[in-house]
Measured scan of single mutants.
Amino acid sequence: SEHYTFDGEEQAIRFMRDMEAKNLKYELQIHNGKYIIQVD
Results as ranks from 00 to 15, higher is better:
residue 25 K to H: 11
residue 7 D to A: 07
residue 32 N to L: 07
residue 6 F to Q: 00
residue 30 I to M: 08
residue 9 E to P: 10
residue 24 L to C: 08
residue 20 E to F: 05
residue 28 L to E: 01
residue 23 N to H: 10
residue 31 H to K: 13
residue 33 G to K: 03
residue 27 E to V: 14
residue 22 K to H: 09
residue 25 K to P: 08
residue 26 Y to M: 06
residue 29 Q to S: 12
residue 1 S to G: 12
residue 39 V to M: 08
residue 39 V to E: 01
residue 19 M to H: 03
residue 12 A to N: 00
residue 19 M to G: 03
residue 40 D to G: 12
residue 30 I to Y: 10
residue 2 E to S: 13
residue 36 I to S: 04
residue 8 G to E: 15
residue 24 L to G: 03
residue 13 I to F: 10
residue 40 D to Y: 15
residue 26 Y to L: 05
residue 24 L to D: 01
residue 35 Y to D: 00
residue 5 T to M: 11
residue 20 E to Y: 04
residue 31 H to E: 11
residue 10 E to T: 06
residue 5 T to N: 04
residue 28 L to K: 02
residue 40 D to H: 15
residue 5 T to Q: 09
residue 36 I to G: 01
residue 29 Q to I: 14
residue 22 K to P: 02
residue 23 N to A: 07
residue 14 R to P: 07
residue 24 L to P: 01
residue 24 L to S: 04
residue 39 V to G: 02
residue 7 D to I: 07
residue 27 E to G: 06
residue 24 L to Q: 08
residue 22 K to Y: 07
residue 13 I to G: 05
residue 11 Q to L: 09
residue 28 L to H: 02
residue 2 E to K: 14
residue 22 K to R: 10
residue 4 Y to Q: 03
residue 2 E to V: 15
residue 1 S to P: 12
residue 10 E to R: 04
residue 8 G to F: 14
residue 9 E to T: 04
residue 35 Y to Q: 01
residue 40 D to W: 15
residue 38 Q to V: 15
residue 17 R to Q: 13
residue 27 E to N: 12
residue 37 I to R: 00
residue 1 S to V: 14
residue 7 D to M: 08
residue 31 H to L: 13
residue 9 E to S: 07
residue 13 I to N: 11
residue 34 K to M: 11
residue 18 D to R: 06
residue 29 Q to A: 09
residue 36 I to Y: 12
residue 27 E to P: 00
residue 8 G to C: 13
residue 15 F to L: 03
residue 18 D to E: 14
residue 35 Y to N: 00
residue 6 F to W: 02
residue 23 N to S: 08
residue 27 E to C: 11
residue 22 K to Q: 12
residue 36 I to R: 04
residue 20 E to Q: 07
residue 11 Q to A: 14
residue 2 E to G: 14
residue 40 D to E: 13
residue 31 H to G: 04
residue 5 T to F: 11
residue 17 R to S: 10
residue 37 I to F: 10
residue 14 R to N: 12
residue 15 F to H: 02
residue 29 Q to K: 13
residue 34 K to D: 02
residue 40 D to Q: 14
residue 13 I to S: 07
residue 16 M to G: 04
residue 33 G to C: 04
residue 10 E to F: 05
residue 8 G to Q: 14
residue 11 Q to P: 07
residue 4 Y to N: 02
residue 31 H to Q: 12
residue 16 M to V: 05
residue 36 I to V: 10
residue 3 H to F: 15
residue 31 H to F: 11
residue 29 Q to G: 05
residue 37 I to T: 00
residue 12 A to W: 04
residue 11 Q to G: 08
residue 30 I to T: 05
residue 20 E to S: 06
residue 26 Y to S: 04
residue 38 Q to K: 15
residue 5 T to S: 10
residue 18 D to I: 10
residue 8 G to K: 14
residue 3 H to T: 15
residue 35 Y to K: 00
residue 1 S to K: 13
residue 13 I to E: 10
residue 10 E to G: 05
residue 31 H to W: 10
residue 13 I to P: 00
residue 30 I to P: 01
residue 19 M to D: 01
residue 11 Q to R: 05
residue 6 F to P: 01
residue 3 H to W: 15
residue 32 N to S: 06
residue 16 M to A: 05
residue 23 N to F: 07
residue 37 I to H: 00
residue 18 D to Y: 12
residue 21 A to R: 10
residue 13 I to A: 08
residue 8 G to I: 14
residue 10 E to C: 12
residue 14 R to W: 10
residue 23 N to Y: 06
residue 35 Y to I: 05
residue 39 V to W: 05
residue 39 V to P: 03
residue 39 V to N: 02
residue 17 R to V: 10
residue 6 F to C: 08
residue 29 Q to E: 09
residue 31 H to M: 12
residue 16 M to L: 09
residue 32 N to V: 03
residue 33 G to R: 02
residue 25 K to N: 08
residue 25 K to G: 07
residue 8 G to D: 15
residue 15 F to V: 04
residue 10 E to A: 10
residue 12 A to G: 01
residue 34 K to Y: 09
residue 20 E to P: 01
residue 39 V to C: 03
residue 23 N to K: 09
residue 17 R to P: 01
residue 32 N to G: 10
residue 38 Q to T: 15
residue 6 F to V: 02
residue 2 E to Y: 15
residue 5 T to E: 12
residue 16 M to D: 02
residue 4 Y to A: 03
residue 37 I to Q: 00
residue 29 Q to P: 00
residue 9 E to K: 08
residue 18 D to Q: 10
residue 16 M to R: 00
residue 26 Y to V: 14
residue 36 I to T: 07
residue 36 I to H: 11
residue 17 R to D: 09
residue 18 D to F: 10
residue 21 A to K: 11
residue 19 M to R: 02
residue 10 E to H: 05
residue 24 L to T: 06
residue 38 Q to A: 12
residue 2 E to C: 08
residue 7 D to T: 08
residue 40 D to L: 15
residue 18 D to S: 07
residue 14 R to Y: 06
residue 3 H to M: 13
residue 7 D to F: 09
residue 10 E to I: 06
residue 26 Y to E: 00
residue 29 Q to M: 13
residue 9 E to M: 12
residue 23 N to V: 02
residue 21 A to L: 11
residue 38 Q to D: 06
residue 38 Q to Y: 15
residue 16 M to Q: 02
residue 34 K to S: 06
residue 1 S to W: 14
residue 21 A to T: 08
residue 20 E to V: 05
residue 37 I to C: 01
residue 30 I to K: 05
residue 24 L to M: 11
residue 34 K to P: 00
residue 15 F to I: 02
residue 19 M to S: 03
residue 30 I to E: 05
residue 1 S to E: 08
residue 10 E to Q: 08
residue 30 I to H: 05
residue 39 V to D: 01
residue 5 T to W: 11
residue 24 L to K: 09
residue 10 E to K: 05
residue 16 M to K: 01
residue 7 D to Q: 07
residue 20 E to I: 08
residue 23 N to D: 07
residue 5 T to I: 14
residue 27 E to R: 12
residue 7 D to L: 08
residue 7 D to S: 08
residue 26 Y to R: 00
residue 31 H to A: 11
residue 28 L to D: 00
residue 14 R to A: 15
residue 26 Y to P: 06
residue 17 R to L: 13
residue 20 E to G: 03
residue 37 I to D: 00
residue 28 L to V: 12
residue 15 F to N: 01
residue 31 H to T: 12
residue 21 A to C: 07
residue 32 N to R: 05
